[in-house]
């Protein structure tokens, strides 16, 4: 008869998971509890503020009967395309701004002005110019993603140790090699930090774009639930879906970041 297997060294998996998730669960329970308490204390009817139980029930029903899925798919495509376009352009412009003071002086006022202009005011105009299809949503998402990623890239590239740049130059690195082998990799933590912000803003951009005119999307579902169906729990279910979508996309960037630059 063999001896029983020794217990694994270090902390066991169960307590580790509990340690990681317990604060999240406690925080979630606190949030739901406070929400329910407000509903009870104010005696709010569901058309003013539905309780968490009715929102969760409506969320499950809307997923089961296929109400949410097509809207989510539309919004997700808008976000991903807008984030990709805005992110790539911002990366290029960010490097340009970091390397050229002249470019910074010329472009910065426009970039800051574009960022300061509420996208809510721009969205109807963009829908008017580019139609109420996918293109206008992608443009709105790209616009909103652009600024944080461009600024993060500029700051990241500028913060590269000048001695490393000097050393690369001494090895006769070309300009492209300097950017691709040194500056961008070194700036990656800052760039990914900008992308974390950008991807959550892209979610807002897609919803605002849909409010300016669309046939489908989570923004459309919110308007339908609120203004036509008067189904406020469904509106909250759509909001919950948007929140979860934002969290998932944020986590994806975090995972990419961990993969590329490690835990920060």
């Amino acid at each position: 008869m063999s001896a029983p297997a020794p217990a694994p060294r270090g902390t066991a998996l169960g307590p580790r998971i509990a340690h990681a998730w317990l604060p999240v669960l406690v925080s979630l329970a606190g949030f739901l509890g406070a929400w329910q308490a407000i509903v009870l204390a104010g005696d709010y009817p569901p058309f003013i503020l539905p309780g968490p139980a009715s929102v969760v029930a409506r969320f499950v029903r809307a997923w089961a009967d296929g109400t949410i899925a097509p809207h989510l798919a539309t919004t997700l495509v808008e976000i991903l395309l807008g984030f990709a376009v805005g992110g790539v352009v911002a990366l290029l412009v960010g490097v340009l701004l970091a390397r050229s003071r002249l470019a910074e002086r010329l472009l910065s006022p426009y970039l800051v002005a574009a960022q300061a202009t509420p996208v809510l005011a721009l969205a109807p105009l963009i829908a008017l110019w580019f139609g109420s299809g996918l293109l206008s949503k992608v443009i709105i998402c790209a616009l909103i993603v652009f600024f944080p990623v461009a600024v993060a890239t500029m700051v990241g590239v500028r913060s590269v140790d000048p001695r490393l740049v000097e050393m690369a130059r001494s090895f006769r690195a070309t300009r492209w090699q300097l950017i691709s082998k040194l500056e961008v990799p070194a700036a990656l933590p800052a760039i990914l930090g900008g992308m974390r912000v950008g991807v959550t803003l892209a979610v807002i951009g897609a919803i605002v774009g849909e409010w300016a005119g669309a046939e489908r999307g989570l923004g459309v579902l919110i308007n339908l639930a609120r203004g036509s169906l008067f189904d406020i729990p469904l509106m909250f279910a759509a909001l919950l879906t948007i929140a979860l979508l934002g969290i998932v996309l944020y986590l994806v960037i975090v995972l990419i970041e961990r993969r590329l630059v490690g835990v920060r």
Partner: peptide
């Protein structure tokens, strides 16, 4: 942060939407 969130929620609902 949680308390602030709850407070904001309460303010939003009690101000504009309270029956």
């Amino acid at each position: 942060a949680l308390l602030v969130t709850v407070g904001l929620l309460a303010a939003c609902t009690s101000g504009a939407s309270a029956p």
